[in-house]
C-alpha cells in the first residue's frame, strides 16, 4: 500500500509540473487539470504493480538525495566526456574503433540499482549495456575494447558508478 502511495505521489508531482502553473490568473486552483492528474496518477498506481518502488522505507532519507545530486554532477561529467569521445571517433577519418561485447560483474543486486547502473554505463564513454542478468553480470558493448578480462573491464566501466549507486539505492 505504501509503495503504491509513493508511486501515486510521484506521478501526481510529475503531472503538476506538466500542467504548471497550478493556479490561474485569478489565483484559483485549476481543479479540472488537478483532478485529471489525480485520476491518471491513481490509475498508474493501481495498474503498475511491477514498477512500483521495491520498498518505501528510507525513501525520505535526505542523504540519498544528496548522493543523487552528487552523482548527477559526476554523471554529467562522464556524459560530456562520452560525447567528445564518440564525436572524435566519428569525425576522425580513420575511425579508431575496436568494438566488442565484454562482460563485467557488479556487486549491486536490487533491480533499480542495476537499472541505474546499466543506464549510466550506456550514457558514458564508449559503453552500451546489452544485457543485465539478475545475478549481477552485465554484458556491455564497448566501442574501444582494451581488455576482455571481466575484472579489468569492471575497473574501467563499472567501479566509477557502483560506489555512488550503492549509496543512492541503499
Amino acid at each position: 500500500m505504501m509503495r503504491r502511495l509513493a508511486l501515486f505521489l510521484l506521478c501526481f508531482a510529475v503531472w503538476i509540473v506538466l500542467v504548471w502553473p497550478p493556479r490561474d490568473e485569478t489565483g484559483a486552483l485549476r481543479l479540472a487539470d488537478l483532478s485529471a492528474g489525480a485520476l491518471a496518477a491513481l490509475l498508474a498506481a493501481a495498474v503498475m504493480r511491477e514498477f512500483t518502488f521495491e520498498k518505501t522505507r528510507g525513501l525520505l532519507d535526505p542523504r540519498r538525495y544528496l548522493w543523487l545530486a552528487a552523482y548527477g554532477v559526476v554523471l554529467l561529467f562522464y556524459i560530456v566526456k562520452a560525447n567528445f569521445d564518440v564525436a572524435y571517433r566519428v569525425l576522425h577519418p580513420a575511425m579508431p574503433i575496436r568494438p566488442g561485447i565484454v562482460k563485467v560483474r557488479t556487486s549491486l543486486r536490487s533491480a533499480s540499482a542495476i537499472t541505474a547502473l546499466a543506464n549510466s554505463i550506456t550514457l558514458t564513454p564508449g559503453t552500451l549495456t546489452v544485457e543485465a542478468t539478475a545475478d549481477g553480470w552485465l554484458y556491455v558493448h564497448w566501442i574501444h575494447v582494451t581488455t576482455t578480462d571481466p575484472e579489468e573491464a569492471a575497473r574501467h566501466i563499472v567501479s566509477r558508478f557502483e560506489w555512488f549507486i550503492s549509496r543512492i539505492f541503499a
Binding site: 556524459i79 562520452a82 571517433r89 550506456t122 552500451l128
Partner: peptide, 25 residues
C-alpha cells in the same frame, strides 16, 4: 555528430552508441 555516427559507424551496436550519447546530450 550523432547523426554522422549513424552513417559512418559499421554496425547496429556502434551506431546505437552514437545515437544514445551524442543525441541524448
Amino acid at each position: 555528430a550523432g547523426c554522422l555516427g549513424m552513417v559512418r559507424l559499421p554496425d547496429v551496436y556502434n551506431r546505437l552508441q552514437a545515437a544514445t550519447k551524442c543525441v541524448t546530450l
